[in-house]
Simulated scan of single mutants.
Amino acid sequence: MTDVTIRHNPDRERFEVLVAGNVIGKAAYKAYDGGDAPQRIFYHTVINEEYGGQGLAGQLATVALDETTSDGISIVPVCPYIKKFLTKHPEYADSTTATTPAHLEFLSGALAARAGA
């Protein structure tokens, strides 16, 4: 596949996969500061169906998690894909924070507020 770009879009709180300038996938997160250090709660990762099976989700997760950790932000995996990815990539273990009820409550409220906006 040619012309694949992965970028951080902080205004939309997500990392995006673009093909020929079109967003075809994303790893969405919510910023959370209720812990000892800043955290990103990753809650949804998706690649458009027609681009499935090409390894793009793994590339997206790698960029998202690498940038998150290099910024000194802890990873909170709620998204099933990110959870599974982390089990196969122990190099992120020191930068991962276990999901707590407080994370889930915050995420639920943040997503509900966004849906109502």
Results as ranks from 00 to 15, higher is better:
Met1Thr: 10
Met1Gln: 13
Thr2Phe: 06
Val4Asp: 02
Thr5Leu: 15
Ile6Pro: 01
His8Glu: 15
His8Phe: 13
His8Asn: 09
Asn9Met: 12
Asn9Thr: 09
Pro10Tyr: 03
Asp11Cys: 05
Asp11Tyr: 12
Asp11Ser: 14
Arg12Ile: 06
Arg12Asp: 15
Glu13Ile: 10
Arg14Gly: 08
Glu16Asp: 06
Glu16His: 01
Glu16Asn: 06
Val17Met: 03
Leu18Met: 09
Leu18Ile: 05
Val19Ser: 11
Val19Phe: 01
Asn22Asp: 14
Asn22Arg: 13
Ile24Gln: 03
Gly25Arg: 00
Ala27Asp: 02
Ala27Phe: 07
Ala28Gln: 09
Ala28Phe: 07
Tyr29Ile: 02
Tyr29Pro: 00
Tyr29Thr: 09
Tyr29His: 08
Tyr29Gly: 00
Tyr32Gln: 00
Asp33Pro: 04
Gly34Phe: 10
Gly35Ala: 12
Ala37Leu: 15
Ala37Phe: 14
Ala37Ile: 11
Pro38Cys: 05
Pro38Thr: 15
Pro38Arg: 11
Pro38Lys: 04
Arg40Ala: 10
Arg40Met: 08
Tyr43Gly: 00
Thr45Pro: 00
Thr45Ile: 03
Thr45Cys: 10
Val46Met: 10
Ile47Ala: 06
Ile47Val: 13
Asn48Thr: 07
Glu49Thr: 06
Glu49Leu: 08
Gly52Trp: 14
Gly53Asp: 09
Gly53Asn: 05
Gly55Pro: 00
Leu56Ala: 06
Leu56Asp: 01
Leu56Pro: 01
Ala57Ile: 07
Ala57Trp: 03
Leu60Val: 11
Leu60Phe: 04
Val63Thr: 13
Ala64Asn: 01
Leu65Met: 12
Asp66Met: 01
Asp66Gly: 01
Glu67Ala: 07
Thr68Ser: 09
Thr68Glu: 11
Thr68Arg: 03
Thr69Asp: 07
Ser70Thr: 12
Asp71Ser: 05
Asp71Glu: 10
Ile73Pro: 00
Ile73Leu: 12
Ser74Glu: 15
Ser74Val: 14
Ile75Gln: 02
Ile75Asp: 05
Ile75Ala: 03
Pro77His: 05
Pro77Met: 09
Val78Ser: 13
Val78Thr: 10
Cys79Thr: 14
Cys79Arg: 07
Cys79Gln: 09
Pro80Gln: 06
Pro80Glu: 12
Pro80Thr: 01
Lys83Glu: 10
Lys83Ser: 05
Phe85Lys: 00
Phe85His: 02
Phe85Gln: 01
Leu86Phe: 15
Leu86Ser: 14
Thr87Lys: 04
Lys88Trp: 11
His89Gln: 12
His89Gly: 07
His89Trp: 09
His89Phe: 08
Pro90Ala: 10
Pro90Trp: 04
Glu91Gln: 12
Tyr92Arg: 02
Asp94Lys: 11
Asp94Val: 14
Ser95Glu: 09
Ser95Ala: 15
Thr96Gly: 03
Thr97Tyr: 05
Thr97Phe: 10
Thr97Ser: 08
Ala98His: 12
Ala98Trp: 08
Thr99Met: 11
Pro101Glu: 10
Ala102Ser: 04
His103Leu: 00
Leu104Phe: 03
Leu104Gln: 15
Glu105Trp: 07
Phe106Asn: 00
Phe106Arg: 02
Leu107Val: 10
Leu107Met: 03
Ser108Asn: 15
Ser108Gly: 07
Ala110His: 05
Ala110Leu: 03
Ala110Val: 15
Ala110Asn: 09
Leu111Gln: 13
Ala112Lys: 05
Ala113Ile: 01
Ala113Arg: 15
Arg114Thr: 04
Ala117Lys: 14
